[in-house]
Design a protein around this nucleic acid. Structure first.
Lengths: 440, 440
DNA sequence: ACAGTTTCCCGTAAATGC
DNA sequence: TGCATTTACGGGAAACTG
């Protein structure tokens, strides 16, 4: 009998569907005021209990400790009603679905010792579902608990919340269901963390991190020889995770294709970028993520030869703002440098190590850049956006004296000046009129 | 005594602060679930009533008619409490402020005759504030009513709602507080409507419509000789107002400066644009709003001469999406056309009638386009976005035979081809390598 | 003053109702 | 089915609150 009771008590399982379809799997973050769904399954196949079991959700049931000691917030359900376990369609098991749950903070925050209070995204809560059973003289209370959840009030907290969820998951075998995990969070081995990070990229961008990328991240995150990572280094302010999560979001929104297809080296230090590019042919470039921008940004670096010297340049990183207006492949395809005498050119020729630009990115171009057909739609001239820069002065050459190159350029410049007014039948407007000549 | 009662009954006045700071003046649109503030002022200066008068808001008090006959929605206050009239700080008058009111639709929508129901943005409601007074044997009920309000549930309705408010305001002298105004809305004279529209532009963009702009709008909106405008023409689907409001929003968000300073002709038909530009010198352009885009869009048209013919071209209109990435002055300053042999140039020289482009727009450029200083920030090359098009083929010339111009272009093209590999110390990559020459 | 946290609310997308 | 209307909620910014 006692066995049966125990069996029944463990037969109820909880399954939460998260509110954030945008976040990759694992339903452990809930936002106040936003609906989520919980499905309860009574694993014991006992149709005779059909419609006898009323299930009720309770927030943080029986967990006085964290609330009082650490001043955890407390939440209630906005519409707390119960559901009756009913027969499942296919299996015949008993199921109840709460399709409309949402949380609301209970104000009157306890006089909690607010000294060393945890960050709200480090509070772990649980939701229990309770029901009672009386049948044939048998009487038992059944309850089932969710995995720990992090409750946030704004999407600007989802990054930190996600850090907690990852850390919890990585420790869940050694510290099962410890709601005070973050009071004294155990450190992790890099090996473990790196794997978890890699999964994030797999989940968001359909491709894991390769060895080089992991190695660059390890250099940034691990600062001791024993490969241990501490929670505060990973998650606290100016942390690695916030930076990485910004990049994950950038990939999710604007770079899925490129990431999936492996064209983004991404995690390369400036220094290594220089080393890699320096020995490649001029015009070779690679894509890397900004290491300073916390919102996710991507730039390209390329190598040029000038006056016998080798230069590696990088453009100011593009953020989600720019990428909402122009896709990265289009930016790359149209990027141009304007130098003295307004000689302009696209310095990007080969994706590292030696893939011709259009071979790599041609498939993503919007208007088939290569054979651009003029389009006039509804009487309007089609238009596109391009990113351009002023050419960087190769250090130590032009300011000194006019080089041979420049003299030639000036000659062409003057020739064009004279031709241009005829070519375009314009009046003489040399100081305003502009014209470009492009060879390809 | 009856006089006094009447006096007191009229002494209470209502003042609603709207939720939409984004919309110009007139607090007559309320959105469900969004807070608004109501200030009540008891004009009779009677401090002896201090704290005696409890005021309570009531939605659509005593207006059974519209609700039942026309199936109006009904709303309740989310937190309906009362306030006590208290002494105002400066004047000594009595004041109560409801700072936290918001509306919620009462479901169980009456069995209302849902045939010819008005659109929800045509429902006019009122909010009354009631209080009672017993003093020295005097007993009277006091109530004050707000001006009519339009209640919406989403910002996607604000445009239509604003149309109703305007129409109501224009008729308010002849039809005071008629909540069923839109059951049979009286028409307006164009004179009146035009003035109101002009005020919208004044309010949003700090500049009214001029005679030419009004005249273009009149041509679009008025289709009869007696200058009368009917509500359905103004407000119903594919209506003039939705189009105009899109433009107002575009101005508010992206074009305030240009509009205020009068550089946007804006409301000009395509036909008139052609007429205006045709007789101007080549490179003359003007800014006009798209007549088809309902979300607000702006384009430029310019005149060119080619093969002795005059052509007027227009670029595909720019919407808020593009203007969030690049400002219109920057777009104009950087716009370029790419023609055969990749001769490219900026066709925009003079803002109509003859203002040099930079004289008009120079003040708005972001990086002082004119004397563009190369910038390298934090090791990154600065970059900008430019809009460009493929040059329209001047009808009837190039496809036939190679013109003199093109032969010259080809020659330059070949010259540059040969020079370019030296200039930039590149290996031979004639089919990928690109270069531009610009004269200015 | 300030940072962590929550609220507010637009604007878009999706869901709902008719 | 289509259109009118409402709901949902991310995301940026303001407001709160210790």
């Amino acid at each position: 009998r006692s066995l049966l009771t125990k069996l029944l008590a463990n037969a109820l399982v909880v399954e939460i569907q998260p509110f954030m379809s945008s976040l990759p799997q694992r339903p452990l973050i809930l936002k106040t005021g936003v609906r989520f769904t919980v499905t309860l399954r009574f694993l014991a196949n006992l149709p005779e209990f059909k419609c006898l079991l009323k299930v009720k959700p309770v927030f943080d049931k029986d967990v006085e400790e964290p609330m009082t000691v650490n001043g955890f917030r407390h939440f209630d359900f906005n519409r707390d009603d119960y559901k009756v376990l009913d027969v499942d369609t296919p299996g015949g098991g008993l199921v109840a679905e709460f399709g409309n749950l949402s949380l609301k903070e209970r104000k009157a925050r306890g006089k909690g010792t607010n000294e060393s209070r945890l960050a709200v995204t480090e509070e772990l809560h649980i939701i229990k579902f309770v029901t009672g059973l009386q049948h044939a003289g048998l009487k038992c209370n059944i309850e089932a608990s969710s995995l720990p959840v992090v409750v946030i009030s704004s999407t600007n907290q989802s990054s930190s919340a996600w850090a907690s969820v990852m850390w919890f998951n990585m420790l869940s075998t050694s510290e099962p269901r410890n709601l005070l995990l973050f009071v004294d969070p155990p450190p992790l081995m890099w090996q473990q963390l790196g794997q978890a990070l890699s999964w994030q990229f797999l989940s968001v961008g359909q491709r894991e991190l390769d060895e080089n990328q992991l190695s660059m991240l390890k250099d940034k995150i691990v600062d001791n020889p024993d490969d241990v990572v501490h929670w505060s280094n990973f998650s606290k302010n100016e942390s690695a995770w916030i930076w990485i999560d910004g990049i994950l979001n950038l990939i999710k929104r604007h770079l899925v294709d490129l990431w999936r297809d492996g064209f983004i080296m991404g995690f390369v230090s400036r220094k290594r970028t220089r080393v890699l590019l320096q020995e490649k042919q001029p015009g070779t470039f690679l894509l890397r993520f900004s290491e300073s921008n916390k919102d996710g940004a991507i730039t390209f670096s390329w190598v040029e030869h000038s006056n016998g010297e080798t230069h590696v340049h990088a453009v100011e990183p593009y953020t989600k703002q720019e990428l909402s207006a122009v896709s990265l492949p289009d930016i790359i395809s149209r990027y141009s440098l304007r130098a003295q005498w307004n000689v302009t050119r696209n310095p990007l020729l080969y994706l590292y190590p030696d893939i011709p630009k259009d071979t790599a990115f041609g498939r993503y171009y919007n208007n088939s850049e290569m054979s651009a057909p003029k389009k006039v739609v509804d009487g309007y001239l089609d238009r596109r956006l391009a990113s351009f820069s002023d050419s960087p002065t190769p250090p130590g050459s032009p300011p000194r004296e006019m080089s041979m190159d420049m003299e030639i350029n000036m000659e062409i410049h003057h020739m064009l000046m004279e031709l241009s007014s005829d070519l375009f039948e314009l009046p003489e407007l040399p100081d305003i009129y502009t014209s470009h000549l492009e060879c390809q």
